[in-house]
């Protein structure tokens, strides 16, 4: 086995670990949380609004 083939093997292992991590987390989240909660986001502004609210709270706390 040359260095490149060894790198290839590491890539297979690395990819398997990452995919396995995602699959485990995927099922864990699906089981742990209520489906309605997971599907509760609304178009376009949910993530940004959350982030902005957090920043606003921080600014107000500082003020």
């Amino acid at each position: 086995m040359n260095a490149f083939e060894f790198m290839g093997l590491l890539c297979w292992i690395g990819a398997a670990v990452l995919v396995l991590w995602m699959v485990v987390d995927f099922f864990k989240v699906n089981i742990t949380y209520d489906e309605n909660y997971l599907l509760s986001s609304l178009e376009g502004h949910d993530e940004i609004t959350e982030q902005e609210k957090k920043h606003r709270r921080e600014r107000e706390a500082r003020a």
């Binding site: 290839g8 890539c11 690395g14």
Partner: peptide
Amino acid sequence: KPFVVFTIAILAW
């Protein structure tokens, strides 16, 4: 193939 899969896997992760 392992490099193709790893590239997609790590970026997807």
